[in-house]
Computed example of a mutant assay.
Amino acid sequence: MKYNVMFSHATHDDIEDLIEIQNKAFYDDYIKYGECPGYGRTYESMKLSVENCAVYKIMVDEIIVGDIIVRDNHDGTYFLGGLCVIPAYENNGIGQAAMSFLDRQFKGAHHWSLETPADKQRNHYFYKKCGFHITKEYKVSTVNIVLFEKSVTV
């Protein structure tokens, strides 16, 4: 099923909803790895993201179903700190719509990077489909992480 997906800037009023969305989206990772930076975020942590990053709500029929968190490095490079969709809405093109939204929103971007667990093949497939490639692998705490990067011609 394809949805009519909308994106809008998150505000302080959305913080508790965003925490709930991330907890739903990252619960399985938290259980699998025993830790997950997207799971169990505090109000203050999410507030800092809303204030210091570009944070967008992903909405379907006025319901928040995911979020996007982008850190602007102020040199044409961006770090995709989070792109999540709650499990009930996965596999419906929402991630693809989110990546297209980012391309439109950040037209001046010439480089993107993001991190994901090394064993999350589904994430790897998605990001490779979006033009990213793995440039590095390392361990953060107990989890093997891969760094994905994508250069954009502007």
Rank of each mutant, 00 (worst) to 15 (best):
A88H: 08
D75Y: 03
L114R: 00
D103C: 09
V85E: 01
I64K: 00
Y56N: 08
T153M: 14
D28S: 14
S45E: 14
Y39P: 10
D61K: 13
H74L: 14
A54T: 05
P117M: 04
I68T: 03
Y33V: 08
S100D: 12
Q96L: 14
K57Y: 04
A98G: 10
E62W: 07
I31E: 15
V65L: 06
D72V: 05
P37L: 06
F106Y: 13
I58L: 11
A118F: 08
G82Y: 00
C130P: 07
A97E: 13
G93E: 10
G34A: 11
I63Y: 06
V154E: 07
Q22C: 07
V55D: 03
T116Q: 03
H133V: 02
K139D: 08
L102F: 00
Y56C: 03
S49R: 13
I68F: 01
T142F: 09
G82I: 02
S113Y: 03
G108F: 12
D103V: 01
D61Y: 12
I15Y: 08
G76Y: 09
V70G: 09
F132E: 02
E51C: 12
E90L: 15
K120P: 06
Q22M: 11
A97P: 09
E20Y: 11
G40H: 04
R71Q: 13
M6N: 14
F7D: 10
